[in-house]
Structure formats: C-alpha cells, structure tokens
Simulated assay, not measured.
Amino acid sequence: MIPAIFTADLTSACRQVLLVIAPGEDSTTATLRLLERRDSESAWQQHGETIPVTIGRKGFAWGLGEHRSQPPAGFRYKREGDGCAPAGIFRVSLAFGEPHAAPPGCKLPYLPISDTLLAIDDPESRYYNQIIDSAKVPAARRDWTGAEVMHRTGGLYRWGIVVAHNPQNQPGHGSCIFMHLWLRPGHPTSGCTAMSEENILRVLQWLDPAKEPRLVQGIG
C-alpha cells in the first residue's frame, strides 16, 4: 500500500499515514488514503473511504523531508516556484484556519489566520519557508520580496494543515506546502495537496499527534 521506496524510512513511532498516490509524475490528481496501525509490527489498515485530491499543476517532484531514499531515476527535485507538489515523507503537526477556533474533534495544535499572517516564499529572506505574523516583525527585518497572504480570498485556507517540507528551510528548495481546500474538483494547485471541505474536516478530526502522523506522497 505504501510505496516500498518509503516504508523503510517511516519512523517506527508512526501509527497514522496520510498516503497520497498519483498515477504518474506529471499527474495533477491523486488519491488520499488514511492509514493506521496499532504498532510498528502491525499491518497498515485503511480508515474510511479513499479521498480524491489535487496536487501541483506540474505533478510531483522529490522533496525534502524525513525520507532518506534517493528518487527513482529521472525523477526531478523540488524547486521554488516549479508548480510541483513534493514527493516523500513529511511531518504534519499544525492545523490552521480562518475561524478563531479549531473545528470540533481537531487534536492538532491550531493557528487561526489573521490579516497579517504571511507565508514567506522569498529564498533570500531570513524567514524563507516560514509562516510569520508580519505585524510582529520590526521594519528593519522585513527582508522578503515575496510572500503569500494566508487570509486569502476564495476560502481555500478556511481549513488547512502545515506540511513540514524542507524543514531546514534550505533556500530555493520549495516553501510553504499545505493541505487545504480545493478550488473545485480536478483543479491543480501550485504545489499543495487540496480536497473538499468535507474531506479536510474528516482528516483534521482523524489526525492524532500522539500517533506521530506523517504525510507520504508519491506515485504508484
């Protein structure tokens, strides 16, 4: 179920996996399965029905996460602005959204979005690949020329999950990857993984930080 290239790199403490599988490297749609196991010796079992998702408009590229394996021959590497979603193994440890409070049943730490919350995508910035409250940053340290306003129109970030891609914030290797609401079925993203509101709420209610959840994305 989980691609063999990733199974050895999953920590034994992980008991929940968000498994996103696309049919090919250039695909813009994929399927999400919620997998869980009792312990590291148990088999993975699917929780509920498969969820349709959309990914980057250019498909997948090899990201930076917890996986140590090398990409398949010819598989491209994730770069800033390439329109690709990252393939690999990633922590999912923070939820966010427009409402002041987390949705019922959400166990992840929750960050409410404000008008001054920015996702920094400028590789030259000291805040690259970080979510910051710009109102709390002194003018002399506002060194970014590119940033995404988290409180955006269209409601795509009404609910979301931060994906710990590029955890060392290496410049140019891709920034600010999330799971969030899709614009419509089949519509690709700039590099995130998107789904319906009903399904992301289902994901948020299922995820349990005590079970060390991970996002695993790849082709199969």
Rank of each mutant, 00 (worst) to 15 (best):
Q70H: 12
V20D: 00
R126D: 07
T31G: 08
Y157R: 07
T145Q: 13
H187Y: 15
G146K: 12
Y77P: 00
L207R: 06
P112K: 04
V216I: 13
E36N: 09
A139I: 04
F75A: 09
E49Q: 14
D39M: 06
I219W: 12
F90H: 10
P99K: 13
G97I: 06
Q70K: 14
I51K: 03
P86D: 14
Q45D: 14
G172S: 03
T189V: 09
P52R: 11
W182K: 10
D39Y: 08
A139H: 05
G24T: 13
H47E: 13
I120S: 05
G97T: 07
K78G: 08
G74E: 05
R152C: 09
T29N: 03
G83Y: 10
P123E: 10
E148D: 09
A135G: 15
Q205L: 00
Y157L: 04
H47V: 15
L201N: 12
A140W: 01
P109T: 01
R37F: 09
L64N: 09
E25V: 13
L64Y: 12
E148T: 10
D115K: 14
T7D: 11
A87H: 04
A22W: 04
P23L: 05
S93M: 10
V53M: 10
A73R: 11
L64M: 02
A87M: 12
T189C: 04
G59A: 05
H47I: 14
P112A: 05
D143Q: 09
S40F: 08
P171Q: 02
A87T: 01
P71S: 08
A135F: 10
P167K: 06
E212N: 15
L215R: 04
Q170M: 10
R76P: 15
G59F: 11
I120Q: 04
A73C: 03
S93C: 02
R142F: 03
P99T: 09
E41C: 07
I120N: 03
G105T: 05
P188C: 06
V162A: 06
L94Y: 00
K136F: 10
E198G: 12
E49A: 15
T50I: 11
